[in-house]
């Protein structure tokens, strides 16, 4: 993805720095609503069903305080990445039992190839580094978060 596509993927409207709900499914809905409010979701119900079906298969709480709910869904027309973070931490069912504090939701259209898996793996690679996680916690504006994510995913 080039920079223009990345800016479109993670528009500042899709980033929230307010404390999200304290429970996993509510966090997923909260992220989805960021995308809904940004006009990115044509079918909220379908997108939510696809996200939850993926969680059913295995949790996207991948440890180190990260949750990355994701799905390929007919509910969006464009690849969409939403972000929020928590200072309290949310139980995302991770194997390392660490509460999640950084959340990324990836939605890609049904017709796309495996774009979501590519976004997922490059995000994961960068989030393994403590420095990246700290930068995302320290960021004071949505614009700064967008900048960090673009730099890390590119």
């Amino acid at each position: 993805m080039n920079e223009t596509e990345l800016k479109e993927l993670i528009d500042v409207e899709l980033i929230s720095l307010d404390e999200p709900p304290a429970e996993k499914e509510a966090v997923i809905e909260h992220l989805l609503d960021l995308a809904v409010e940004a006009g990115r979701v044509s079918d909220r119900e379908q997108a939510l069903a696809d996200l939850l079906a993926r969680e059913e298969e295995s949790t996207t709480g991948v440890g180190m305080g990260i949750g990355i709910p994701h799905a390929k869904t007919a509910g969006v027309a464009e690849p969409t990445l939403a972000f929020t973070r928590s200072s309290e931490g949310v139980d995302f069912g991770a194997m390392d039992d660490e509460p999640a504090t950084l959340f990324f939701m990836i939605l890609v259209p049904e017709a796309s190839s495996d774009d979501h898996l590519q976004i997922l793996s490059s995000l994961s690679r960068s989030l393994v580094h403590e420095e990246t996680r700290e930068k995302l916690h320290a960021a004071e504006t949505s614009e700064r978060v967008q900048e960090i994510i673009i730099a890390e995913v590119a």
Partner: peptide, 16 residues
């Protein structure tokens, strides 16, 4: 190589 005991690290491999 990355740790096989970290879900985040394994996800980051993006193995098809």
């Amino acid at each position: 190589l990355v740790s096989a005991s970290s879900m985040l690290a394994v996800t980051g491999l993006g193995v098809a």
